[in-house]
């Protein structure tokens, strides 16, 4: 009987340790997908794997400050230019056209997503492979936000962690 109790306690202890380790790992994992600066919170930046010299970066942004901020563009070490673009239908064809800025209201959210707003990376220095990541500096009128970007599959429609609470 005593032996059985000891075994059960041992299993519980191991499970608890594994769970704590898992939580820690998950927390690290979350941290790798979000960033905050100047009252702006960014989450789940991602792009699609590509061999082309251009790519679109999508991200969920929230303005947690008490004043309006303006998203204007970005920079990245792996691209010659990073431009804020918006999806549009022109003559029946889907195109992304440059946009000078987009305001985000206080406590407002702005989702950059496929068929909507995006940051367009042109002149990529290398192909992007699924699973790797790189950094993009998202530029606002109030300051910059360094954001890790996850490279998803070439046909992905969202970040692989989309929907997870952070």
């Amino acid at each position: 009987m005593r032996r059985s109790i000891l075994i059960i306690l041992g299993v519980l202890s191991l499970t608890s340790t594994a769970s704590l380790a898992g939580d820690h790992h998950h927390a690290n994992d979350h941290a790798a997908h979000e960033a905050a600066a100047h009252g702006i919170h960014g989450l789940h930046a991602w792009t699609r794997a590509t061999d082309d010299d251009h790519a679109l970066v999508f991200v969920e942004l929230k303005n947690e400050s008490d004043h309006e901020v303006h998203l204007t563009g970005g920079h990245s070490a792996i691209a010659e230019t990073v431009t804020l673009v918006g999806f549009q239908m022109q003559e029946g064809e889907a195109v992304y056209v440059p946009i000078p800025q987009v305001p985000v209201q206080p406590e407002g959210e702005l989702d950059l997503m496929p068929n909507g707003l995006a940051l367009q990376l042109d002149g990529l220095a290398r192909p992007l492979a699924k699973g790797e990541s790189f950094e993009v500096e998202i530029v606002f009128d109030q300051g910059h936000l360094m954001m890790p970007v996850q490279v998803e599959a070439n046909n992905a429609t969202q970040h692989s962690h989309a929907g997870h609470m952070h």
Binding site: G86, V97, I99, V102, G116, L117
Partner: peptide
């Protein structure tokens, strides 16, 4: 402007 439409959609 196109950017205004995005701001409006967000709002």
């Amino acid at each position: 402007e196109l950017w205004s439409n995005y701001a409006l959609r967000s709002e």
